[in-house]
């Protein structure tokens, strides 16, 4: 039974994880460039953070080192803090401008 399970288990090349994380990160960048809704842009930033997390865990499993997973833990804490403050700012912006379009914030560009 145990032998059968371990025979069925096979490895995944590390390159596949690099490609998957790259795809997720690029989709996040695409969302930030493509959409105008601030909430969607926040979600795409979360997507990018997740891609980096996945790559860190893959490298940690590959090298047999737990430090990468501790870093993922820290990144999760930073993401939670970022979302809390960002959504509070978003609510204040919405109360002042009645919109979540990034067009109303275009004075921040210059």
């Amino acid at each position: 039974m145990n032998n059968a399970v371990s025979a069925a288990i096979q490895g995944v090349p590390l390159n596949y994880y690099i490609w998957l994380s790259t795809a997720l990160f690029v989709i996040g960048v695409l969302g930030v460039l493509y959409r105008r809704n601030i909430i969607i842009i926040f979600m795409c930033i979360e997507l990018m953070l997740n891609a980096v997390n996945l790559l860190l865990v893959a490298f940690s499993a590959h090298h047999g080192d737990g430090a990468g997973q501790v870093f993922v833990f820290f990144i999760m804490a930073v993401a939670a803090a970022e979302v809390a403050v960002g959504l509070a700012i978003l609510i204040v912006i919405y109360n002042n401008t009645r919109s979540t379009d990034i067009k109303v914030l275009n004075k921040l560009k210059w």
């Binding site: 399970v5 371990s6 288990i9 096979q10 490895g11 995944v12 690099i18 590959h62």
Partner: peptide, 21 residues
């Protein structure tokens, strides 16, 4: 990114191995 990371580090991750990390 894919072009830059091609062949950087090749290896196989043993999924489901009994590592306790």
């Amino acid at each position: 990114i894919i072009g830059a990371l091609r062949g950087v580090e090749t290896g196989v991750i043993e999924l489901g191995s009994n590592s306790k990390i």
